[in-house]
Design a protein around this nucleic acid. Structure first.
Lengths: 281, 281
DNA sequence: TGTCAAAATGTAGTAAACTTTCAGAAATTC
DNA sequence: GAATTTCTGAAAGTTTACTACATTTTGACA
């Protein structure tokens, strides 16, 4: 449970409230979000009491009036204590669960940011800048990350493709040439085909950039490694927030590459943005 | 640069507002704290205009009424601003640029978290729970977001598909049936085909959930709206960090839906996770 | 420059909101 | 069991949010 200032205040005053006022307090504690947007009439009806009683409740918890209750409640609800991640369980209320998911996502980005300085971004940029073509490979959720990244990189004018299944990845690796870059995204890095593909591509003189678990076969075979720790999904409800971090990492890589590519790339970006603006996304 | 969800929304819309409405916007931006607690009369007096003008301003920035402005503003003001984003320029060093991109991503998630309580998640869950099938539509970067979301939702056992081009979206809308849900993702909401699709689908009794700019044709046609502010890309280098927020939003929606769907859905999730674990991602 | 349509703005009115007053009911005290 | 205090809601008073409509302003075009 999160610590909300206003709600805690109410909880503490709960015992010394009169029965009717107590009902109001209880309802507010149980439905803080609804209470924040409710009107005096709605709230009094919900608590089976009269409007003045609700108002007296407000005064008693130290507020100037009913209107202030709404303000304090929205304040309390949108003020996170920290983004410490706890797993979602089946007993969580919907709004609790949502906040937990969100916090986990934020935390994973914060973690990524902290580790960014030790990532081989400069090396990757140097390699990507000379690339004849870039292929991004990933399965499942990572496939979507690869697709998103491809959609960014191609705007720099570099031939770019997405590979979302193992046969295609293997085929690409088998015919790769020098200056081709294969970016492989894998959560655990344990699909044996990925390591094979990395070996094949490297043997043909191509470069393999892996964004994966550092303790894996794929990580060992890759030319450049972006280490991403494996987050064990302790709860079945938790979506993989690590993919958000991967997306952000690729964003960062893209921007670094765009900057390194100078005016020509900047022009291409301008042109491609204008093309969209003339329509509307 | 954008710190606050609501305030940034107002700032972005500032240029296309009429003079009087512009004065209101300016005053709100300059005195957000006061504006959050103000009454309609106070605000209109302060901006030397009439009450309806203030109200029109509220509608135009995507709010339901004046009361909502107060709520959104207190929300915006009470969330901590840490990851201050500045735009990436061509003179930035590579490492500076990377951190800026990362900060922008984190900030967009924080903003999304702050605005989450006012999103129609519960309504959406109720609708999705009864859905015969879910189709997620989006173009360009939004298409990848749609794909990612589809990849999550189908695990709950709901027939699910991704639509990444306008003809397909229109066709789906044209043959949609009651209890079909069409989720449309659009950055600006200004592709006329999206609004048409929404209208078509609604006419056939299907439900349209839009994740888009609240000031758009699509937003008006949708049955359920998740308002997302349009972030103008002031710099050609800046990637759209809003899509990360959209991903996280869909994560939240997914978890809420999973929880609401009870044991049967939980079982499906367990089974699908096990299927992967026996291999390796 | 004049005409007209569209946009912008304000006036006036209304329904609903918030707040206060007051009197009766319930609990407590003596 | 009467007196006192506390609790409660009906009703009335004020303010607020919103709507409909009228007026003004703007801008396009002849």
């Amino acid at each position: 449970m999160y610590f909300y200032y206003m709600l805690e205040q109410i909880r503490q005053l709960l015992p010394q409230l009169s029965p009717s006022e107590g009902r109001v307090a209880q309802w507010v504690l149980n439905h803080p979000k609804e209470a924040a947007g409710a009107t005096l009439a709605m709230l009094s009806r919900e608590c089976k009491t009269s409007e003045p009683t609700v108002l007296r409740f407000c005064k008693r918890v130290g507020l100037g009036g009913f209107r202030e209750l709404g303000i304090r409640l929205t304040e309390a609800l949108s003020n996170p204590l920290s983004y410490v991640h706890r797993d979602v369980g089946p007993d969580d209320s919907s709004s609790d669960a949502i906040l937990k998911v969100m916090d986990a996502s934020i935390q994973s980005l914060i973690d990524m940011r902290a580790g960014l300085s030790s990532m081989p971004i400069d090396r990757s940029v140097a390699i990507l800048k000379k690339a004849r073509q870039i292929a991004l490979g990933g399965l499942g959720a990572s496939g979507h990350v690869a697709g998103d990244a491809c959609h960014k990189f191609f705007r720099l004018g570099i031939p770019c493709s997405t590979l979302v299944d193992t046969p295609t990845i293997l085929q690409f690796a088998a015919i790769a040439e020098a200056n081709d870059v294969l970016v492989l995204l894998s959560h655990t890095g344990r699909w044996p085909e990925f390591a094979t593909a990395a070996r094949l591509a490297t043997a043909r003189g191509a470069t393999v950039i892996a964004i994966t678990n550092p303790d894996s076969e794929l990580a060992r075979e890759a030319s450049v490694l972006f280490p991403c720790p494996v987050i064990e999904d302790t709860s079945i409800y938790t979506p993989m927030s690590s993919r958000l971090a991967q997306l952000a990492l690729l964003d960062a890589l893209y921007v670094a590459l765009a900057l390194a590519s100078g005016e020509q790339a900047a022009d291409r970006l301008r042109i491609s943005k204008d093309a969209l603006r003339r329509q509307a996304v």
